[in-house]
Nucleic acid binder design. Structure first.
Lengths: 236, 236
DNA sequence: ACCTGAACACCGTTCAAGT
DNA sequence: ACCTGAACACCGTTCAAGT
C-alpha cells in the first residue's frame, strides 16, 4: 500500500501497531505514572498499555532498573524542552537570575510529574540528559565568575533543588485537628515551640490553617537563602 | 522455676523466647537493614530473625507501612541517644553553633544507617520522635532571636539536612574512566564544563581522582552556606 | 528479530484455624 | 491473646518455544 520497499529493507513491517522502541517504553511509563501513580508502573501494566506481553519489554530494556533510568532521563528531557534547550547566555551580572529561573522552570516540570523526585532519588547512575543539564548549570556558575572549586561545592550544595525539588521534613499535617484548643493544649506539653508557632500564625491569620505552608514560597525562600550565601562567598 | 506468680498475673509466661513487642520488631528491622540492606527487610525475613512466622508480626503492626514508620522513629531516637537528649540551651549568641553541632550529630547517626534517608523520604506521616526533634530545632532558632515567620521558613529551607542527609545529584562516578584522555576528549564535546572542572582538579592534585568528592566536606559546606544566608536575614 | 506462554521464586496480606 | 499454615493476588524475571 505504502511506497515502502519492505521486502528489501531490513526495517520490519510497521503492521497494525508501531514497533516498540526504548523511547516508546519510557514515554508510556511516564504517562502511566502520571495517570495512575508510580506504583502502577509494573512491567505487566506497562506492557498492557502498549498492547503487548510483559516479556516483550525485555527485548528493549535489560530490566526494570534500566526502565526507570530511561524514565528519569525522559523527565529531565522535558525540562530541556520547557527551557527551549539547555543553551543560555549568562554573564557575571546575570548568573543569579539565570540560575534561579532555570531551577524554577525545572520545578514546574517536576510538579507535572509529582512521582519523579522519589524515582530520581532511587537512581544511582546519572543519566545522559541529567549530565548535560548539570553541565549547563555549571557553565552558568563559571560564567558568573565562580572558581572551579566554588562551583563544585555549589553544585553539591544545591543538590536536588537543581532539578526543582527538595525533601521538606517539616510538613505540619493540615488534616490534624490543630484548630481544637484541647488538642493544642495536649500537644503543647511535648511540642511547645511548634504549637506556639502554630497558635501565633493561626491567631494572626485564621485563614492560613489549612495548607498554610505554601510550597512554592518555601521553595523560593530556600533557593534565595542559598543564593545569598553563595553571593557572599563569591565576594560580591 | 522463677519466683513468678504466673498463674495469677495476666502477664504471660516469658517461656523460651521473650514475647514480641512493637519495639522489638522495630529494633530487629533496623538491625536487619544494617546487616543486609533495606531490601532484605521483608515481613518473612524479619519474622525469621525473630524466630516466628511472618503472620505473627501483624499482631503488633498493622502492615509494613506501620513497621517502616516505627523504624524511622527508632532511628531518630538513636539521634536523641547520641545527643544525650534533645534538651539544650542555646541563646542569641550560640544558635548557629548549637544548630550546626546538632545536625552533624544527626549525620553521624545516619551514616550508621545508610539506608535510612531513602526510607524517611518514603514516609508521609511524621513520627512522634521526629516531631519532638523538630520542636527542639525550632526552639534553638527562637532562642536565637528568629521570629516565628523566619524560623518557619528556615525549617523548610533546612529540609532533610536537619536529619543529617541531603540528596546530592552531582556525584561524578569515580568508577568512570576519567583518567583516560580519550574518554575525556569524547566527553568534552557534550560536557565541556564538567570535563574542564575534572581536568583542572586532576591536574592540580592527581590523587583526588578517586573519591574526590568528600561527602563530609560538601555536607558542611551546604550547611554553612545556608547558615550564612540565614544569618544575613536575621539582621546579624 | 521480535514476541509469547508457562513457570519460578519471591512479595504483602487475608482468613480460618489452632493453643 | 497470641501464633500458625495455607492460600490469594500480585511482583520481576528466566526459559524454551513459537513466527
Amino acid at each position: 500500500m505504502v511506497s515502502n520497499t519492505m521486502d528489501q529493507l531490513t526495517e520490519s513491517d510497521p503492521g497494525q501497531r508501531p514497533p516498540l522502541s526504548r523511547e516508546r517504553l519510557f514515554q508510556a511509563a511516564i504517562d502511566l505514572a502520571d495517570r495512575r501513580g508510580i506504583e502502577a508502573v509494573t512491567m505487566r501494566n506497562l506492557a498492557a498499555d502498549l498492547g503487548v506481553e510483559a516479556m516483550s519489554l525485555y527485548h528493549h530494556v535489560a530490566n526494570k532498573q534500566a526502565l526507570l533510568d530511561g524514565v528519569v532521563d525522559g523527565v529531565v528531557a522535558d525540562i530541556e524542552t520547557e527551557l527551549g534547550g539547555f543553551d543560555v547566555v549568562a554573564d557575571a551580572h546575570s548568573w543569579r537570575k539565570v540560575l534561579r529561573d532555570r531551577i524554577l522552570t525545572a520545578r514546574r516540570v517536576m510538579l507535572r510529574h509529582p512521582w519523579a523526585p522519589a524515582v530520581i532519588e532511587t537512581r544511582t547512575i546519572t543519566t545522559p540528559t541529567t549530565l548535560r543539564y548539570m553541565d549547563t548549570l555549571l557553565g552558568i556558575l563559571l560564567q558568573g565568575g565562580f572558581s572551579y572549586d566554588l562551583a563544585h561545592h555549589t553544585m553539591h550544595a544545591i543538590g536536588s533543588r537543581a532539578l526543582g525539588f527538595s525533601q521538606e521534613l517539616f510538613q505540619p499535617n493540615p488534616d490534624d485537628d490543630t484548630g481544637s484548643n484541647d488538642t493544642l493544649a495536649a500537644m503543647a506539653i511535648e511540642l511547645p515551640n511548634i504549637v506556639g508557632m502554630l497558635s501565633t500564625i493561626v491567631h494572626d491569620d485564621p485563614d492560613t490553617t489549612l495548607g498554610w505552608c505554601d510550597d512554592q514560597t518555601e521553595f523560593e525562600f530556600g533557593i534565595d537563602v542559598l543564593l545569598d550565601g553563595l553571593e557572599r562567598r563569591l565576594g560580591g
